[in-house]
Design a binder for these strands. Sequence first.
DNA 1: ACTATATATGGAATCGATTCCCTATTTTAT
DNA 2: ATAAAATAGGGAATCGATTCCATATATAGT
Lengths: 332, 332
Amino acid sequence: MRTIKDIAKLADVSRTTVSRVLNDSGYVSEKSRKKVLDVIEETGYVPSQHAKSLRTKETKIIGVILPKISTDTSSRTVDGMNEVFGEKGYQILLTSTNLDKVKEIEHLRLLQNRQVDGIVLLATNTDEDLIREIQDSKVPVVVIGQEVPHDSGIPSVVFDDYGAAVKLMEALIGSGRRKIGYVGVEAADQAVGVLRKRAYLDVMERHGLESGAPSVQTGDFSIESGYEAASRMFSDGTGDIDAIFAATDRMGIGVWKYLREAGISVPGQVAVVGIGSSETSRFIEPAMTTVEYEFEAAGRAGAEILLSILNGFDNGPDKKILDFKLISRDSL
Amino acid sequence: MRTIKDIAKLADVSRTTVSRVLNDSGYVSEKSRKKVLDVIEETGYVPSQHAKSLRTKETKIIGVILPKISTDTSSRTVDGMNEVFGEKGYQILLTSTNLDKVKEIEHLRLLQNRQVDGIVLLATNTDEDLIREIQDSKVPVVVIGQEVPHDSGIPSVVFDDYGAAVKLMEALIGSGRRKIGYVGVEAADQAVGVLRKRAYLDVMERHGLESGAPSVQTGDFSIESGYEAASRMFSDGTGDIDAIFAATDRMGIGVWKYLREAGISVPGQVAVVGIGSSETSRFIEPAMTTVEYEFEAAGRAGAEILLSILNGFDNGPDKKILDFKLISRDSL
DNA sequence: ACTATATATGGAATCGATTCCCTATTTTAT
DNA sequence: ATAAAATAGGGAATCGATTCCATATATAGT
């Protein structure tokens, strides 16, 4: 492995001069610059990032913490981040918690040890411990996907979950549905578990509709859990439902599957809507009405916020709320 | 930021001793060890990875080059890799070429500059330039997804694309289909573009069946391109086709969509099969017959090969061929 | 012609760890 | 009791860059 010292010797200049050429800093004559550049070209020399980082305290690496890599949400968000980070010469160090809440904090620490320049966290919860850990972080952290307490000082990017859910509910009610069931997820997840459900309950109440126990079910994001949630709705209270609002597309697909198998016509007897605009939701029949979130945009926004912090433009804790788009299809 | 020097001073020992405690090396008395550990606990000290890597030449980081992050194939493979790398304390530095072939080489270089310990490349081609660049690499590289020349000395993990395609074709023919069309991708992609097509052509020939021009089409992996390929098949030669083998599920879904819209019954008039076992393929109607590749396993296998090389067990260039599973559903 | 100032370059300290080598003290073996 | 081996711990070199400071020369300003 060649070092700057070797290059200096070969080019017959000092290490200082080589470093100057490398970084376009200070004064270097054309002659010296050429000599150095030639030697670099010949030798295929590449400076050591570690030595560099050791001095400059910059790594050009951003740590990203995901709940799981292979989900539509995660990978599209990372794609978006990568776009803007890549442009600025940053690379992404990926870690996955595999849905283990404890690991979120663990990885937060691990990444700081790696001395990344910043961290993006695709959060699944907003527990106090987590918030505290973020606040204690030595490097800037941006949270994507979860509402953080407004006084926490933590920048974040979220989708308008409440608004999206309201819009979907209004659409359901606008089409004459009254006995609407809900399939959600546990409350630890603010964005998906709490906000969307609250929208459902609020709209139901506003219209004086009842949202009793059997018509409100909880799943775990999987298609299967949607299927089972639907089956519970119909085995219990039974039949007295004319629409189901699933908090995510995947659970919605589970619901749809159950309905199909149970011989319940969609949307004739029961309408189904979801959130997420997954590929599958487009191709089932009837195609599912859903809400489109542009995850790539969320990734980009998160990256941009982090970058602006890194560049010292720390104009207060940004909170960016991303818009959504209602995709009306045939399941409603 | 605290350094080992601060800790040494606070614990009233030398940096050497602190380092020994940190790395469990050399002789350290229980007393000293406790003092050091206590100070570390109190201060929340974390050693600098850069300083460490500078000396040890180890980063515990693996570079991963993907064609695109947000695809099922990529993200599942990364998930698998992450599983085994994570266990061994390695982290993943992600880069995406966004399907730009030139960038594959560029990123290969970039990652070496980052002095990653190893590189995993999800390849989309096997051009000479790329192979040469890999061979010149200072750090070990494992290729996933593409057959590399057997004499290149490059370890790789591939799926049995030819075998899978043959099996699918035999199933088609076994069900009585004779006029089988093919929707593939360009030949730069060995695995998908060449191998699967060759299997198609071989099987057709073996059975004395004709595979003329209009019934062999090329797409670009997208659903839309599958749709268009199908439409070309039927506008040209027209009608004289009783099955379509799509090289990927997504293109297969495009084909299915076209058939549906054109009022051609599936599988009554035309059967459709794909490769990949995507989620959507399961839920369309009729559900699509396809081949399941376990991408997570490919990721794991790639990671294991790389790890064994890093540990000095360099038992020749491994080439691992992964099995597949035929998923028979209703589209055939 | 004589200061200023701009240009060019190198020496040496520095970043924060690891590790070789040396010395001192204990423990064990004979 | 004495030599050998094990245990404990520190000094200082080292990894490969950046950067402060000093010095030397060229150019410009008056």
